[in-house]
Nucleic acid binder design. Structure first.
Length: 277
DNA sequence: AGTTGTGTTGAAGA
DNA sequence: ATCTTCAACACAAC
């Protein structure tokens, strides 16, 4: 569930650990730590001061004093809780789905939960971070994301369905299944439309809606559809203002047409056939 | 009780 | 190459 607004919310929450340092790391799901053993990972971050907490697309980057970054991808169900109190544990983790714990000198511990175990943790050199950035598209929250950028990326992927373009991280970052449907409703464009078929007016509306919806979602601290929580365990607020996501069968708030659901790219897609064209 | 759907995305298959 | 499908895993809901 964490898409750009949720990851941004967590990153903002985690910024309070900047200046703190790691004092230990334990894991009961070693598979989640990529390309390095748990022991080596623990050794690498041990006593390292935290220089910044940032985001690259949906990847959380915790930059250490030596320049390397811990990269965390929450995937579907990853959750990070900054508890403020240190959890003691070695053999059995006290809560179900609590797989990893980062111990901090001043801020207790970062508890990493993940029901489905898709989330990943890696240790990245600055060069590796740049390599990921190179393969990634533009961040739609940044002021640099212009109407021309959107125009050119729609031209690049001209034969694809619009929703797939919005969700393609090599083109534009951080838009997942929920916000793709909500953005397209806001822009009044059908998700099945082929990228090259958009009129200049529609592209302009889409550009406005991408920024508007993502910024609103960040302001509301994300969408808690099932298990997303922020770093202190609280729910987001965007689920209260969803217009189409999971609203199939219900009347559209704008035009009272029944919201429909269809599958695009094997993912549920929601839209209003009355408002969207 | 078995099937279906779930926020992601990389890798395999066509 | 490029596009589509699947697999990683666990659980709730039907």
């Amino acid at each position: 569930m964490p898409e750009l607004p949720e990851v941004q919310t967590i990153v903002t929450d985690l910024q309070k650990i900047v200046g703190d340092q790691f004092t230990g790391f334990v894991s009961h799901v070693p598979k989640a730590i990529k390309k390095i053993s748990v022991a080596n990972f623990a050794k690498e971050i041990q006593h390292k001061k935290i220089q910044s907490v940032d985001r690259l697309g949906k990847i959380i980057l915790i930059k250490l004093a030596d320049g390397k970054s811990i990269g965390i991808h929450l995937k579907m169900t990853g959750k990070i809780l900054l508890t403020g109190s240190r959890k003691l544990l070695t053999e059995s983790l006290p809560e179900k789905h609590l797989h990893h714990i980062f111990y901090l000198k001043k801020n207790g511990s970062l508890d990493f939960f993940d029901v489905r175990k898709f989330a990943t943790i890696s240790l990245l050199t600055p060069a590796e971070v740049e390599l990921i950035r190179t393969g990634y598209g533009i961040d739609p929250i940044s002021d640099k994301f212009s109407l021309q950028d959107l125009q050119s990326l729609l031209t690049q992927r001209k034969n694809k369905q619009l929703k797939l373009v919005l969700m393609d991280n090599s083109v534009i970052l951080g838009i997942g299944n929920i916000y793709a449907s909500e953005i397209l409703f806001d822009a009044k464009i059908l998700p099945h439309r082929i990228a090259s078929s958009l009129t200049p007016k529609e592209i302009s509306r889409l550009h406005t809606s991408i920024k508007k919806i993502l910024r609103l979602a960040i302001r509301l601290r994300g969408t808690s559809i099932s298990d997303y929580r922020d770093a202190s365990g609280k729910m987001g607020g965007f689920q209260k203002v969803l217009k189409v996501y999971k609203k199939n069968g219900q009347k559209c708030q704008v035009c009272a047409t029944i919201i429909e659901k269809s599958i695009i790219g094997q993912r549920s897609t929601f839209f209003c056939p009355g408002c969207q064209h």
